[in-house]
């Protein structure tokens, strides 16, 4: 099992490296596609089946195809033949390496054990805490037999209904903005 995790992480990291280092944007996009498939497998292994399916459908099926169209529409001979990085690439590399080592060291030595649920921390009355704990335990018991998409749907259309509607407005605005930016006579 452990060797599988290591191989999967290595695959994702190598694909990410390929995105940043590949000369041609097509290679970058294909590398990103393979990396996203790896991320989806990681989600599946962490028992987030619905999100894994959305990841494949939206990223591989939608966003990557959009980027491939973008690459196709904006091919330029001169850009392909020039240096692919700015002059500041090496200083940036050193700075990001330092950032990665410093923060990575901190992350490695952090404690990740779960806290009390936030909803419990906000309550002061002991009987309320008890009631909410009972309800949470009941919900957990009821959710045990539900599949992952069923449970996600219950939370998404229950607790997060308004953020969900706001996300649809965001997508609408993004579509309008994209049409406005790309149309001919701006």
């Amino acid at each position: 099992m452990t060797i599988g995790w290591i191989l999967l992480s290595l695959m994702i990291a190598l694909c990410a490296l390929g995105v940043v280092l590949a000369r041609s944007p097509i290679s970058s996009a294909i590398s990103l596609l393979i990396g996203f498939v790896g991320v989806a497998i990681l989600y599946l292994a962490l028992k987030a089946e619905f999100v894994a399916a959305v990841q494949i459908l939206v990223y591989a099926g939608g966003i990557l195809v959009l980027y491939l169209f973008g690459i196709m529409l904006t091919d330029n001979e001169a850009l392909r033949l020039t240096r692919q990085t700015h002059l500041q690439a090496w200083p940036v590399f050193v700075l990001i390496l330092v950032l990665f080592l410093a923060v990575g060291h901190k992350l490695y030595h952090s404690d990740y054990t779960p806290q009390q649920p936030a909803r419990l921390l906000m309550l002061t009355d002991q009987s309320q805490v008890q009631a909410l704990q009972n309800r949470l335990a009941q919900e957990a018991g009821a959710a045990q037999h539900a599949t992952n998409p069923q449970r996600v749907a219950r939370v998404l259309y229950g607790d997060y209904l308004y953020p969900f509607e706001a996300a649809s407005v965001l997508l609408l605005v993004a579509v309008l903005g994209a049409v406005f930016l790309a149309k001919k006579d701006v």
Partner: peptide, 25 residues
């Protein structure tokens, strides 16, 4: 966390649309 990942993918889709619009412009 899973709900927020779904929102994240929605934001990424919006970002891709705007980014491609900027690229074409």
């Amino acid at each position: 966390g899973q709900i927020f990942t779904i929102f994240l993918i929605g934001v990424a889709a919006g970002e891709a649309a705007i980014g491609l619009g900027l690229l074409i412009a």
